[in-house]
């Protein structure tokens, strides 16, 4: 009975610790939600009332409106390009051997290691040298490189889990390489590609450090506009925008978990 009690006790301690740690991870988001509905311009806990005025200001502030549209444009192009390039590359790495494969793999995985400000600074200089400055093209290119490793990884894991016998079976039944790709490989890779695209889109939408370097006022994305605002004003407008982003992200995660499985997207169970 003693051992039983000890086991119970340590299990209780363990789960309390886990709950506390998760609380530490979650409290900032809750504080943002709380602040966003506060009527006061100054920080106060608990809020003295309930007001949606900061949401109104956030949604009508021209810089945010422009930045939001910019961000959507950049994200749409960047994540789609990233999906195309990343899927192709994952297929290449999984199926073919060719000279320089290792080098290519290392280069395309390196944006994970290279500090974002180094990447951003590099693309800023590159854009300036090519005389295309801080244009959409430069911003999109930066985001493609930054999100590529995630898409590649996600598609690669799906490819590894794909039974090669299925493709051979299709070939054996008379399907041409293109037909095999269209009728068998791609449909089976779809969940992995969807997961990769989702991760790419979320990262692109919220990317800040590199974007700070490669965007100008004209092309700035939402996080950059938010940063600029935080440096100038202290009112909770940013809390309102943040609350919207947090809510949006949480719902998206719930949906992704329901339909794609977060474990699979994040490759936790991958072998």
């Amino acid at each position: 009975m003693n051992a039983w009690l000890a086991t119970r006790l340590s299990a209780g301690l363990f789960w309390s610790a886990v709950a506390l740690i998760l609380g530490y991870m979650t409290i900032p988001a809750l504080v943002v939600l709380m602040t966003s509905v506060s009527p006061s311009e100054l920080l106060e806990f608990p809020p003295s009332g309930f007001s949606l005025r900061w949401y109104e200001r956030a949604l009508t502030y021209p810089d945010f409106q422009g930045a939001f549209v910019n961000g959507l444009i950049v994200t749409a192009f960047a994540s789609s390009l990233s999906l195309l390039i990343g899927s192709a590359f994952a297929y290449l790495v999984e199926r073919y051997t060719f000279g320089g494969r290792v080098a290519l793999e290392a280069i395309l995985a390196s944006p994970l290691i290279v500090p974002h400000f180094t990447t951003g600074f590099g693309f800023l200089l590159l854009g300036a040298n090519l005389r295309i400055g801080q244009s959409y093209a430069v911003v999109v290119a930066t985001h493609v490189l930054l999100t590529l490793p995630f898409v590649t990884r996600s598609v690669y894991v799906s490819l590894r889990n794909l039974d090669p016998a299925l493709e051979r079976a299709a070939t054996n039944l008379g399907a041409s390489p293109l037909q095999v790709l269209r009728r068998v490989t791609l449909p089976l890779l779809l969940p992995g590609m969807a997961g990769g695209w989702l991760v790419a889109a979320m990262l692109s939408l919220t990317e800040f450090t590199a974007s700070l370097y490669v965007t100008a006022q004209r092309t700035q994305t939402l996080p950059v506009a938010m940063y600029t605002y935080v440096r100038e004003y202290t009112d909770p407008t940013i809390a309102a925008i943040s609350a919207l982003l947090i809510t949006f992200t949480t719902i998206l995660m719930l949906i992704a978990n329901r339909y794609l499985g977060l474990r699979r997207i994040l490759a936790i169970d991958a072998h």
């Binding site: 900032p28 988001a29 979320m202 990262l203 938010m226 809390a239 943040s242 982003l245």
Partner: peptide, 18 residues
């Protein structure tokens, strides 16, 4: 999983501001 991973996708500005 949701509590632990969602913060990753809300972006650094939101989290830093928080």
């Amino acid at each position: 999983m949701l509590l632990a991973v969602t913060p990753l996708f809300t972006g650094e500005i939101v989290r830093t501001y928080a």
